[in-house]
């Protein structure tokens, strides 16, 4: 799919330029774009380092664990069939807390461990369990307090207010989480009725 999109941009772009006689403009703009891509990444180094440095301090101070404890009642409601003190719920809580802080790199290992624990609870067949589906619904719509990468990118591009979008992101991810969890519940109930 990504292959198709990228090829489409290049082929149709150059094709249009050939027809409209803008080939020279294309050549100069491509040279300019590659230069800007590198300049952008260089600017991104500083702002990304600042955020990842701060977030490492938060991680080492045990903020992920504290958040995980605070979210425990939520897990009880999301995963009624699971032992709330078990390792599966523990890993899922760590994953959710890391996502909440915008720590994508820290979230993924917790998420994969959570999947492995969920697999131990449903070891047979190649079908996703109810809990796995709910976990992915929560994970892909993850509520985010600080979208770290995008804030750093905005700062690197010279935004006067890099964090301006934080509120909108938080509220939008709350919306998507509500929609995902509701859809998960409804589809699970529908699957039960069909006896699947």
């Amino acid at each position: 799919m990504l292959n198709a999109v990228w090829l489409f941009l290049l082929v149709v772009g150059v094709g249009t330029a050939a027809v409209t006689g803008r080939i020279d403009v294309v050549t100069t703009s491509v040279t300019e774009a590659t230069k800007q891509a590198v300049e952008l990444a260089i600017g991104f180094i500083g702002t990304m380092s600042l955020w990842l440095g701060l977030m490492r301090v938060a991680e080492k101070a045990g903020l992920i664990e504290s958040l995980g404890r605070a979210l425990r009642p939520l897990a009880r409601w999301l995963f009624p069939s699971l032992d709330p003190a078990g390792p599966a719920v523990g890993m899922m809580l760590m994953n959710m807390s890391a996502n909440l802080l915008g720590l994508g790199n820290a979230a993924t290992p917790f998420g994969l461990k959570a999947m492995a624990e969920l697999r131990k609870l449903a070891p047979d067949g190649d079908r996703a369990s109810d809990a796995m589906c709910t976990f992915l619904a929560v994970n892909t719509s993850a509520i985010t307090l600080v979208p770290v990468t995008i804030v750093a990118l905005r700062a690197a591009l010279g935004s006067s207010q890099p964090t301006a979008i934080v509120g909108a992101c938080f509220l939008a991810t709350v919306c998507s989480a509500v929609v995902s969890v509701t859809a998960d519940r409804l589809l699970r109930a529908a699957a039960r009725r069909k006896g699947a």
Binding site: V12, V25, A41
Partner: peptide
């Protein structure tokens, strides 16, 4: 870690910014 995270975006930035530059400057 921020250093490598930023450096690793370069290939993606080059791929997309180039394709968008072609697509935009051609009028498409």
């Amino acid at each position: 870690e921020g250093f490598w995270t930023a450096i690793k975006t370069i290939p993606f930035m080059v791929a997309i910014l180039t394709a968008m530059a072609v697509f935009r400057s051609s009028g498409a």
